[in-house]
Amino acid sequence: MARNSAAAIFTRVFSFYRDGFRNMSDWGRKVWIIIIIKLFVIFVLLRLLFFPDLLKKNFENDSERGNYIREHLINSE
């Protein structure tokens, strides 16, 4: 019974989104294309190629990262 009602809610939610996207206006489609291109540029091109998390990349664990920053705080002028 509970499983049936959960499935019914899921179906309703799914068809709500499906119909919404299907009946989207011209401007809506255009902005979705922009969103997809933008997310690709941000998360794939920029993140992977230009913006690595340097402390994560260069050190294996938080202890090494902490030691490195502590040295930086002590020795910088």
């Binding site: 922009i34 933008k38 913006f51 340097l54 930086h72």
Partner: peptide, 20 residues
């Protein structure tokens, strides 16, 4: 729609350009 996620880039910059 056009503005969404543009702020995420600031978080990328924290990790790369402002790691200390």
């Amino acid at each position: 729609a056009i503005g969404v996620a543009t702020g995420i880039i600031l978080e990328f910059e924290f990790g790369t350009n402002w790691s200390a």
